[in-house]
Simulated scan of single mutants.
Amino acid sequence: MNIKNVFNFYSRYGKICYYDNKLDKDILLFIHGLSVCKEVFYKQIELLNNDFRIIAIDLLGHGGSENASHDFDYAYTVQGYSDCIIEFLTLFGAKAVTVYGWSMGGSIAIELLERYSGVKKIYIDSCTPVSYIQGNMRKAYLFNKVARLIIKKFYTYDEAIDCLKKGGIVPNHTHSFQKIEPVIEGFLRANGNMREISFASLMEMKGVSPKECVEKQREKVKILVGAKDPRINIKYLKKHFADITEIYPKSGHAIFWDNPSTLKQLLEQN
């Protein structure tokens, strides 16, 4: 990404770093997952950079953004992250916003759909709309050693690579190791306290209940999931959201990484 297109926004909890191509077009907002950074979406930015005003943010405690300055137990939750993004979008009077959220970013996208009227469509990648009301987290997700890997406070370089690999971020014929290096650096930079608080907040199931929000506004939602995703219970998605779910047989926990042109194709269909 062109460093000239990286800017800072000063939210209530600290400085947020973001990419913005500044085009006079509808906004396409990218929200990354836990412990990574905006650079993980470099390929989508390359493919769509002339078609939208693309904004890709680093959440607080991630990438080029600052660690939260106060109220950590709230600032590092889905609601806290969403507050900052809403503050950001409101500043620009943003309307007709399309949001692409990966993993934890998908949970934030659902929160934005419920709370920010300018959101017209969300794509949630490798994220399942659970019901906070029914408390059905263990029906929607698969809890195994892969899930536990993401909440360590500190990682070595090799551990970061291994964790990203299990999350689907691996070098291949499309992504060179050189392109992954900024994501590895972002993973190692991610605040350890943030990691623990963010994961715990997801388990506590507070805020907008994703399942009920998506059921109410399902025409604005597309769910993308890999058949090989070790964290997602696909049977749950087929039961509740078959009509708005796309399953990718050869993919794991990062559809956008395995299939970089998928979002462009989906956007062209709508």
Rank of each mutant, 00 (worst) to 15 (best):
Y100V: 10
E66A: 15
S103E: 06
L28F: 13
D83T: 12
I54Y: 11
I45R: 12
A75Y: 06
I57E: 01
I31K: 05
L224F: 06
S117R: 14
T128P: 01
G63Q: 11
K120C: 13
E114C: 09
V97I: 11
K120I: 08
Y76L: 12
S11G: 09
A227I: 00
E159R: 08
N144T: 10
L266D: 15
N67C: 15
I122G: 04
L164W: 08
L164R: 07
M104F: 12
L142Q: 08
I27R: 13
R195C: 07
F7A: 05
A160I: 03
R138G: 04
S107G: 14
E159T: 07
G226P: 03
P129G: 06
K228M: 07
Y76V: 03
I85V: 15
V183N: 07
F177D: 10
E87F: 08
S176P: 00
S261A: 12
I184W: 06
Y10R: 13
Q265A: 09
Y132V: 02
F30W: 09
S251E: 10
Y42R: 09
V225A: 15
L112M: 13
D158N: 07
E215N: 11
N8G: 00
A75E: 05
S11L: 09
I108C: 14
V6D: 05
F143W: 04
H175T: 01
Y19Q: 13
Y10F: 15
L224A: 06
K4A: 02
Y74L: 06
R148Y: 09
G135R: 12
H253F: 10
V146E: 06
